[in-house]
Design a protein around this nucleic acid. Structure first.
Length: 606
DNA sequence: TAGAGAGGCACC
DNA sequence: AAACGGTGCCTCTCTA
């Protein structure tokens, strides 16, 4: 048996590396004595769906002792890891979703086997303080949390060792994992400490979870949400690789063509704002718009206002390049052996607990105007793409949470809230008109206020004159006085305590100098919890195999063609929820085989 | 050569 | 008095 020692705050940590059958006997004794175990894996990469993907080490530990199993070396070690995962009553891991995928793909126990045992420090950390490091919070990554809650110096030392190892092996940091010697002492220390870290972090975080969150059962609830999204990740989305390749090639041709055009004006690199600024200056064009930091801006807004062939070429070249790389190339690179792609869904991510989707399918940012990008994702053979989304989700949450009578009445009567705001600001609808001529100002005001903005934001973002924007925002607060009172109440609470609590018992930190954001945090977080609740209920009702992606106020499905109508109806009824007395309705749209076809169909209707 | 910051742009 | 909230990804540029 190889062993590595480490001292954490004066306490010796013993890391044992199994090398033989005798070692595994000792390992089994350790597992038998520790029903609650920290768990982690070291792998060749992050793409657990890849055929070349391997699990190299599996680690188990408590506060002072860890065992490292070199599962890469043979079946006896994998078998021991499998046994330990079955034996343990609870498994503590940080971002355990990933390790569940690894286990299922390369060790044995499935997500269904492991999820009931999982205690994920990522959810605990989020409930304690969801703020990122750059928001002056603890962050959500393991290393960040260790620095904050466990031991700053030790965390830097151990976690920094992989950077040093990469240097030693003369590879980039992300390339170290498949090439590092399995028994490299630094690697074993890094790997062995991980379950110890997770174990200690769990015990540091547990007492800090707000009492109200615990009372509402949020800890197990978040685990349940993550369980559902991890099954969606596993299922993946069928990719139309031919479509993706064709679009990618077209975009590349497009990009090249416009780059050549830009080069005629002396711009070699369309992505270099400096080159563009120099070029336009040389043409005698005065640039005025500034960035946040006070530099000259060179965004789409500036470029399209210039009315210059160079600006036109730059916009087109940049766009083609970005779209090709971000959407199509990314998806093509992420295919598994069955032609499916797998999202990485962070079920509890933003400050408000909103989910985020990263990696192969950054679905939350897919262009929404048409099906150009979404068309590369296909429902399974014999199935249809279906999108079910909530109607006016955040505005309904705002109405219900605040109890504003005017807004509630409007929603209950099926009135158009954007029209209503326009009427309040600019007078009654002209006779015979279907829409108020100032409806856009009303809509912009409704959304912007929901986001915490004022007249300036309404004016800038919605192209409304400052005067009209001022009028509309003033009318908003004068009409929806319940929203005003609610916002003021949240702001008082935020200034006094630094937090607001949602109806689900979630504690949201609010920066005292940005207390106005409290309303938005409350709404955004409540809306997220409505979608999260739907995921759990859909899972319970047996819909998970058909679920593909959650996107804020929308869930995308692949339903068997002959049952699409029925299942869409049922799923929408499950998603719908009465939030504080107001229905948040859900409505489904059935498309063809591709996700994009849902949009095309919808667009053709209007 | 990697990392970080900045700018920009895709979305809800 | 007013206040635009939350994400992810790509590229360039500067720094260490």
């Amino acid at each position: 048996m190889k062993s590595v020692g480490y001292t954490l705050k004066g306490t010796p940590i013993s890391i044992k590396v199994a090398e033989s059958a005798e070692d595994l006997t000792l390992f089994r004794a350790f597992v038998a004595e520790n029903p609650v175990l920290g768990f982690d894996t070291e792998t060749t990469g992050l793409d657990w769906w890849d055929t070349d993907f391997r699990c190299r080490l599996a680690q188990f530990g408590n506060a002072t002792e860890a065992w490292v199993l070199p599962v890469e070396l043979g079946a006896e070690f994998t078998q021991a890891a499998r046994w330990a995962l079955g034996q343990a009553e609870r498994l503590i891991a940080h971002n355990g979703t990933y390790d569940m995928h690894v286990s299922e793909a390369r060790i044995g126990p499935t997500i269904e086997d492991l999820a009931p045992k999982l205690l994920d420090t990522k959810y605990l950390a989020h409930l304690v303080d969801p703020r990122a490091v750059k928001e002056a919070g603890p962050g959500l990554k393991l290393e960040e949390l260790l620095k904050y809650y466990v031991d700053q110096q030790a965390a830097e030392e151990v976690k920094g060792s992989m950077t040093a190892l990469a240097k030693k092996y003369k590879v980039k940091k992300e390339e170290i994992w498949p090439v590092v010697e399995l028994f490299d002492t630094d690697f074993l220390l890094y790997a062995g400490m991980d379950p110890v870290w997770a174990f200690r972090l769990f015990h540091a975080l547990w007492p800090k979870v707000p009492a109200r969150s615990r009372k509402h059962g949020l800890v197990s609830w978040e685990h349940r949400v993550g369980y559902v999204t991890s099954k969606m990740e596993r299922k993946g989305y069928l990719l139309d690789a031919d479509y993706a390749r064709e679009r990618s090639e077209e975009l590349l041709a497009d990009q090249r063509r416009w780059e050549v055009e830009a080069a005629k004006y002396g711009v070699e690199n369309v992505n270099s704002n400096q080159q563009l600024i120099d070029a336009f200056s040389a043409f005698g064009i005065k640039l005025t718009k500034k960035t946040k930091k006070g530099n000259l801006a060179m965004d789409d807004d500036v470029l399209s206002s210039l009315n210059h062939p160079l600006a036109d070429a730059v916009v087109k070249a940049k766009k083609a390049g970005k779209w090709r790389k971000t959407w199509f190339e990314r998806a093509l690179k992420g295919q598994d052996a069955d032609g499916r792609v797998h999202a990485s869904i962070n079920s509890c991510q933003a400050r408000t607990a909103r989910m985020s989707i990263t990696g192969t399918i950054p679905a939350q940012t897919f262009p929404a105007g048409d099906g150009f990008v979404r068309s590369m994702f296909l429902a399974d053979e014999g199935e249809l793409s279906v999108s079910i989304d909530y109607g006016n989700m955040e505005l309904r949450v705002m109405a219900a949470a605040s109890g504003d009578p005017v807004m509630l009445e409007a929603f209950r009567n099926g009135e158009d809230l954007h029209n209503l705001t326009a009427i309040a600001a600019f007078g009654p609808m002209p006779p015979g008109a279907e829409k108020h001529p100032m409806r856009k100002a009303g809509k912009g005001t409704n959304f912007t206020v929901c986001f915490g903005g004022g007249w300036k934001a309404v004016s800038d973002q919605w192209g409304i004159s400052p005067e009209d924007a001022k009028t509309a925002v003033k009318a908003f607060w004068g009409t929806y006085t319940g929203v005003k009172r609610f916002s003021e109440k949240l702001q008082r609470e935020a200034r006094r305590t630094g937090y607001v609590y949602t109806a689900t018992g979630r504690r949201l930190p609010v920066d005292r100098d940005r207390a106005y954001a409290a309303l938005n945090y409350y709404i955004q977080s409540s809306a997220r919890d409505i979608t999260a609740r739907a995921l759990i209920e859909l899972d319970k009702a047996g819909f998970t195999e058909w679920m593909r992606l959650p996107i804020h106020d929308e869930i995308v499905f692949s339903f068997p063609e002959d049952r699409a109508e029925e299942l869409t109806f049922k799923a929408a009824r499950i998603m719908e929820m009465i939030f504080k007395g107001l229905l948040v309705p859900a409505d489904g749209e059935i498309g063809g085989q591709s996700w994009g076809s849902v949009l095309e169909l919808e667009n053709s209707k209007h």
